[in-house]
Simulated assay, not measured.
Amino acid sequence: RDRYEDRLPRYYREAGKVSKAVACYRAKAEKDPKDVKVRETLALLALARNRQKETARYISEIRDIRKEDSPRVLRLEGQLLVAQRNYKQALRKLLAVEKTSPHDADLQYFIGLCYLRTGDPRQGRTYMEKVSARFPDNERVGRALAEIYYVLGHLEEAKKLAEHLRATGRRSTVLDIIIWDAETKIGDVGRGETGWRTFTEENPDRPEGWIGLADALWRQGKRTEAVEVMKKAYELDNKSFRTTWTLANMRVVQ
């Protein structure tokens, strides 16, 4: 019976029946209040479903049982902090775990992402390229690496990777921004304009689209229209340097 109870939640997970798997693991946790492993599994499943409070509760239970830090606990806490977008604290915990798991690709991904989000894309690139070399078809790794290349100003590499992801059915606003900004700056500016027009129709509340469209128009000498478009970006984001300075500069030059 014990062997059956061990196999059943794994079967549900492999079959994609996550709710049933969680119910089985919860039953095991209630049966054994000292079972750390099952609580680690429950924390990971809660993270995968973006249930942050539930994740924190299981981590707290693990700490109460173990009474000390462990790489597994630090890793769970780090991943929870990433989900909460607290990248600085997440990075500190994940780097501590790296000492015991230097070749863990999943860990390297999260560390690379934290470096990107905390303003160090060069270090993020080091980690993310290692993961990409091992898992070249992984969507989240490819998307993060494309963003890193974009932030570093490597537009050709960023565009190539973003277009590859789109060609395989992946879609996101981040990929669209990378593709159309690169197209505008280093490719066919007319095609960039068309792309930005589509983007603004689909995402009218994203200032990036209006900024990109204004840039494409300006580069083609359509200055009056570019200023009007930039005004729309300013209406959406009137406290950012990217809109205030650009609009002011356009008016001066115009």
Rank of each mutant, 00 (worst) to 15 (best):
A144I: 15
A144Y: 07
E147K: 11
E147R: 09
E147C: 10
I148Q: 01
I148F: 14
Y149V: 13
Y150S: 04
V151W: 03
V151Y: 04
V151K: 04
L152T: 13
G153K: 04
G153C: 10
H154N: 15
L155W: 10
L155R: 01
L155D: 09
L155C: 03
E157F: 10
E157I: 14
K159G: 08
K159I: 13
K160P: 08
A162H: 02
E163D: 08
H164P: 00
L165R: 05
L165T: 00
R166L: 13
R166W: 11
A167R: 13
G169R: 01
G169Y: 09
G169F: 02
G169Q: 05
R170N: 12
R171V: 14
T173D: 12
T173P: 02
V174L: 15
V174G: 14
D176P: 10
D176G: 08
D176L: 13
D176F: 08
I177F: 05
I177V: 09
I177G: 08
I178T: 05
W180S: 00
W180Y: 10
D181T: 15
A182R: 04
E183I: 06
E183M: 14
E183S: 05
T184F: 02
K185V: 14
I186C: 10
I186H: 11
G187H: 08
D188I: 10
R191V: 14
G192D: 03
G192R: 02
E193K: 09
E193C: 06
E193M: 14
T194P: 02
W196Y: 10
W196P: 07
W196C: 00
R197M: 12
R197T: 14
R197P: 15
T198E: 15
T198R: 13
T198W: 14
F199G: 00
F199L: 05
F199N: 04
F199D: 04
T200G: 08
E202F: 07
N203E: 11
N203S: 06
P204W: 12
D205A: 11
D205E: 11
P207F: 08
E208P: 02
E208D: 11
G209I: 03
G209Y: 04
G209Q: 02
W210I: 09
L213E: 05
L213H: 03
A214F: 13
A214M: 05
D215F: 03
L217G: 02
W218T: 09
W218K: 07
R219F: 03
R219I: 07
Q220W: 02
G221W: 03
K222E: 13
K222Q: 06
R223V: 14
T224K: 13
T224E: 15
A226Q: 05
A226L: 06
V227I: 15
V229F: 03
M230T: 07
M230V: 01
K231M: 07
K231G: 12
K232T: 10
A233P: 05
A233C: 11
A233I: 13
L236S: 01
D237H: 05
